[in-house]
Nucleic acid binder design. Structure first.
Lengths: 148, 148
DNA sequence: ATAGCACGGTTGACGTGTCAACCACAATAC
DNA sequence: GTATTGTGGTTGACACGTCAACCGTGCTAT
């Protein structure tokens, strides 16, 4: 069998996997954004500010914790700042920037937490067997990003 | 246990699952786009034109087969047309549009096929055990989009 | 007839992502 | 001194996705 070609079954598996992810992930995100007006990125930012930094983090740490590059985060924070979810304050120590969560951000996050939790439970966790869980865990281990 | 909250393990599972998908999927797409200049969307369009329509399909059929809405496809075709990958021809029968693959598109597709196949094999299929395959298959069945 | 609707598509606005170029400043190299 | 490099971040351009509004045209109901 030619290694350069995929069988019908192999290709179908790839499409099924993509489709499943997009379905589940899309449902969770849609549920959150419809109920809270937050996007996935917004939630990630607010969540880390709250949990990791007790409300404030320097931009680079935030980017690292989200596995985002600095440009992506910079653009995203610009939009979030405009909506009053976060603030940016220059740190004259070393040209860094301290990102802080606002009251608006805090309250949006509180609203979002239970909704996200329930969405993940309904659309994802409730669909999984113990076998699926084992599979996901091992696959994640096997395909982790190699730290440079 | 409060159903509105997720345990650490549950949350970790969600993140692992997202991370695994993004890693594998990102690797496959990056490999294709670096070698051929095609995006995932480009490949999908060309692939379906070739396989389903022998080089031409009306826009709505194309959109349906990709599970894209008409707006998304319209925008994407505009970009692909500009690059000479496809053509659009009005069907005066019913205001439909016939999308056709060009020589440039055909040759780009031929280049991409083996690369995509090998990338899917290396980054995805080769990582799976029989157990993973069973899990993926069943989960796909369970979470399929409801048709209407 | 005409009002309403469905179909097939386009368009504009805007959020999101990526890439490469840039900027200011500090530390180090020569 | 003057390069070079590194750090921390911004910016602009452009691809991609989604949403809502719109445009012709034909079909149907009244």
């Amino acid at each position: 069998m030619n290694k350069r070609e995929l069988s019908q079954e192999e290709l179908q598996l790839w499409y099924k996997w993509k489709g499943t992810f997009n379905n589940i992930f899309g449902r969770v995100i849609k549920e959150m954004s419809e109920h809270t007006g937050l996007s996935e990125g917004d939630y990630g930012v607010l969540d880390r500010l709250d949990l990791l930094g007790d409300g404030k983090l320097r931009q680079q740490e935030l980017a690292d914790s989200m596995d985002w590059d600095k440009s992506r985060l910079s653009h995203h924070l610009t939009r979030m700042e405009k909506r009053g979810l976060v603030t940016r304050k220059p740190l004259d120590a070393d040209r860094g920037v301290l990102v802080g969560i606002t009251d608006v951000g805090t309250s949006a996050l509180s609203d979002a937490r239970p909704i996200v939790a329930m969405a993940i439970r309904r659309h994802f966790l409730d669909q999984l067997t113990d076998l699926d869980i084992a599979s996901i865990t091992k696959l994640a281990e096997k395909t982790k990003t190699r730290s440079p």
